[in-house]
Design a protein around this nucleic acid. Structure first.
Lengths: 240, 240
DNA sequence: CCAAAAGTGTTGCTATTACACCCATGG
DNA sequence: CCATGGGTGTAATAGCAACACTTTTGG
């Protein structure tokens, strides 16, 4: 089986860039100005160059196209290789999940952030932050709606036994239990009891070395809250 | 950005074919008869053709190269796109996990099955079934040792909240709680209490509709055991 | 003083674990 | 009749969820 026997497919990366904006989970989309799917929204993506890996292509995408200065958390979702997922040509796409803290977001004209809310099973309602655009995940270009659904399941599945929650928060930033709970609820898409969160969840994070108390307290209406910072690296906990 | 701008990489699929043989988890490897990595073991794989998806390529690999007649369970692991993972050329590989029941295995001269046992962290000891070859996962060709480690973590992570356990068992086959426990222990790589397994685990499988009692009983030494069959389709349970 | 927000305590329920006991068969 | 293997019972424990109560601030 010689190496030159088959015609090579195009290989791209597509990025599912998530953030929590105003206590809601949001995804970054771009409006397509070319066919196919002209006028529809889709995920930002780029071709993989000869001299870079998939991760490398994502980093280039983040730096050049999305103009995000700092390194953010990126992990591979999965690869989509169906034959006609791009009507023009045979294109294989490696999908990546990226997470950017709200405070590190940069305002780029063609970056549209959409708040994610569930409608029915396997279909998400997307509401634009800036204009009044509303759409369903099934209305995204290519197979990007499918990607978004899978990505969201992955995020929610990992939130309780990995540290991805903290990728939504700026490094070295102080936060209270309430702050963290708000982020948690946005990502998980469900409410969790306030008291239990501070008592158990926060203590779990502490005892696994992911966060630590700063000693300082928050100010504002009501009783001051303890503040914490994220200290952990890449850690899985729970399950021995 | 035109579609023809970049040189396209080679894209292949690699298959991590698992089975439980004699109550031990096993992986299918082939001995390389060409450079690079000549004489070393590696995963079976193939190029993706123009007219097939990644899954399609895996099915062709299973049917043609591995001569497995029946459909087996296949799921995508992840894609490996590092620049020099193949010393000859830039090759991107989509790795898939396959699971074949012991009874459906076919004896092919160049299919070598290796029993998997843990040695130290992130390195697995592989012992050949037929000859006396022993090796470590770190000694596999390409980045296949890394793939194997990741795949095993995935299998073990999914065993408690998906139905992959039953993919190791022939469909419509009767099995006892002990049979299933043996498979479970082989995959999970740990012992579980016998009484608890029959009482709780089996009942969980029943109440989630994955298995049902046949009514018949096993024969042999000791008290006859209830027998079950797998009835479920693709189901995730636990976690609402 | 009071509303708001935060910390902590109590309780009940469920799942997990370890272990023990008795049951049914083959040799 | 007894060793082997299978089903089921019990008790201790850990974790989770719901809720109540107390504490500390700003207005």
């Amino acid at each position: 089986m010689g190496l030159l026997e088959y015609r090579h497919p195009y290989v791209t990366v597509d990025l599912l860039l998530f953030s929590v904006i105003d206590n809601s989970l949001a995804i970054c989309l771009t409006k397509r100005d070319e066919e196919p799917f002209k006028g529809m929204y889709s995920l930002p993506g780029t071709f993989i160059h000869e001299d870079e890996s998939g991760e490398g292509a994502v980093e280039r995408l983040l730096a050049d196209k999305l103009q995000i200065p700092k390194q953010i958390y990126v992990e591979q979702l999965q690869t989509f290789s169906d034959l006609y997922r791009d009507p023009r040509e045979r294109v294989i796409s490696i999908a990546y999940i990226g997470i950017i803290p709200e405070k590190e977001m940069v305002d780029i004209s063609w970056m549209h952030w959409f708040i994610i809310s569930n409608s029915n099973v396997d279909c998400l309602k997307l509401t634009s932050l800036n204009d009044e655009d509303k759409l369903l995940s099934s209305e995204l270009g290519f197979d990007h709606g499918k990607m978004l659904n899978i990505a969201l399941n992955r995020l929610r599945g990992k939130i309780d036994y990995t540290d991805i929650l903290f990728k939504f928060i700026q490094e070295k930033q102080c936060f209270t239990a309430s702050d963290l709970r708000n982020v948690y609820q946005a990502v998980a898409g469900k409410e969790v009891n306030r008291g239990n969160f501070t008592k158990y969840q926060m203590n779990t994070y502490i005892s696994t070395g992911l966060i630590k108390k700063t000693g300082t307290q928050s100010v504002g209406r009501g009783r001051p809250a303890d503040t914490y910072t994220y200290t952990g690296g890449e850690k899985l906990w729970i399950r021995s």
